[in-house]
Amino acid sequence: MDINAAPLLEVDGLWVRFGRTRGRFAQGQLEAIRDLSLTVRAGEIVAVVGASGAGKSLLAQAVMGLLPTGATMGGALRYKGQPLTPKRQRQLRGREMALVPQAITWLDPLMRVGPQVRGGDNRPQQAERQRAVFARLGLAPQTERLYPFQLSGGMARRVLLSTAVIGTAQLLIADEPTPGMAPGQAAEALGILRQLAHDGRGVLLITHDLELAVRFAGSIVVFYAGTTVEEALAADFAAGPAALRHPYSQALWRALPQNGFEATAGSQPHAGTPLPGCLYAPRCPLMTAACTQQNPPLRALRGGMVRCIHAT
């Protein structure tokens, strides 16, 4: 990974809210993402790791400009240094930024696979390109004539990834690309993503699977209750809890099967209930009275970032 490469995507203090913005029930708003910051550079995989229900999927939708109706967002999004306005998102979608499809349901069931991978582009060059991509991913030429329901699991995974490979997109966003896959299959899919990163693209990997993230990503952003609590190199996670900065990250590490499978008591606060202090405080072994005063800001520490007043 090249730390000095120009950032591809910068997310700074992103928030996403749901609910009515007008009328009498404005207080019924719900903050799904409160304060999320991260940077993706060309050539690296950045993993956002968090438990389900933490609002991770909304991150992908916010960056692409595809938030569901009723959602509002704020904070700063920059692509190649320029702010991502809705207009710019529309221009970049599919050209510069691409979403890696999660499952076979992301393909139109009534359309043959080949034309779908090619997108709306009917030129012969595009068909050539699609065949080349299929060949590269080890898909037989006749696969393009099949309908999605005729694909086996392994073929489907490669067809889905081929939509990302065929495009010119610099930034790939993969939201839980491995649901329900056996470890070997998941590794195969992520291996392809890592190849794409080697080719010079930036990959934002959104996942709940810390183990895979540690294996494939360069850096890891730990996401808790709608906020970034730590940004660390994957190497820090490989090194163990001493190298990690935030107590939640340490708890995640200890929860891995090979590290003792130790669960932390309590659960993530409900997205609708804002607390005044640190969001992790109720479950934190280091909690003191100071923790309940205000949610600590993100600060630099040992080459990473952490949102904790006790971390050293």
């Binding site: 529309r90 979608r93 599919g94 499809p101 359309m111 997108g119 709306g120 939509t163």
Partner: peptide
């Protein structure tokens, strides 16, 4: 509301393009 239309939008397809390509077909 399907995933494949969300994906088509993520690939830059516009309203009419989606209607033509996925809507009418389905």
């Amino acid at each position: 509301q399907t995933d494949y239309v969300l994906f088509a939008r993520a690939r830059g397809a516009g309203r009419w393009h989606i209607l033509k390509r996925h809507g009418l077909r389905n």
